[in-house]
Every structure is written in C-alpha cells, then in structure tokens.
C-alpha cells in the first residue's frame, strides 16, 4: 500500500542569495487507486531539515514540542498534502545545501532536494 505513496520536497527557488529566506515545501501524493491511511503519533505532521555536506544546519522541529495524540488521516487516490515552512538563515555561507522534507507518518516518508546559496 505504501508503495503508491510518493513524497517530493522542493524549494521556491533553486538559488538564493546569502541571508535570503528559503521557502521549503514537502508534498505527499497517493498515486494509487485506493485510499491510504496515514498515522501520526503526535501533532507533528512534518519536519524539514537543512544540511550542508554532512552537517545539519537547521531543523524545523528544534525547540518545539507536540501534543501526544494519535491522529489518522486518509489520503484519497490522487490526493496530495503539502506543508510549507520558511528557513531564515543567520550566517549561511555560499554553497550547495540539501533540504529534506519529512512526512511524520509511522514510519516517516522523506525526500531531499538541493538548492544553492550564492554570494550575491
């Protein structure tokens, strides 16, 4: 059932200048013909992680806590769910970054994408 699920992460642009706000979205799609049930073990539906090389620079859920209830969400065939957050870098150096969007299903679904931070 879960093979019909696809997850995609994208940033609003492929290139940003230093200190520019990066908007990241993660989309989950039910590509199958039957409904899929997503199970969340807390109020946290998603997460975003920004890393440069091996180093994790930012995680959206850092400094947050979530209500501890089990939630179920049904994704109908062809239905998508998108979550968006913004990362405001404080001292990003130019280079290639990886943004990973996570859908916090049990087990989680995640997908990476890359973006460039430019000197300008």
């Amino acid at each position: 059932m879960k093979t019909q699920i696809s997850v995609k992460t994208q940033t609003s642009k492929s290139q940003y200048s230093v200190e520019e706000e990066v908007e990241i979205s993660v989309t989950i799609t039910n590509g199958g013909r039957s409904p899929v049930e997503l199970i969340f073990t807390s109020a946290q539906r998603y997460d975003f992680i920004i890393s440069k090389g091996e180093k994790e620079i930012w995680r959206w859920s850092n400094g947050k806590m979530f209500a501890m209830t089990i939630e179920q969400l049904i994704l109908q065939p062809n239905e998508t769910l998108t979550y968006t957050e913004k990362w405001k870098p404080t001292d990003a150096t130019p280079g290639e970054y990886k943004a990973t969007g996570v859908i916090m299903n049990q087990p989680p679904f995640e997908a990476p994408c890359t973006f460039i931070v430019d000197r300008s």
Binding site: A43, Q44, G63, K64, M65, F66, A67
Partner: peptide, 13 residues
C-alpha cells in the same frame, strides 16, 4: 502553550 496545530515552542512552555 500549544497552538491550534498542537505544537508549541519550548520557550513558551
């Protein structure tokens, strides 16, 4: 301390 989505900042907690 938790918002309408059920999440909260540790600082608010």
């Amino acid at each position: 301390v938790l918002n309408s989505q059920g999440s909260g900042f540790v600082s608010d907690i």
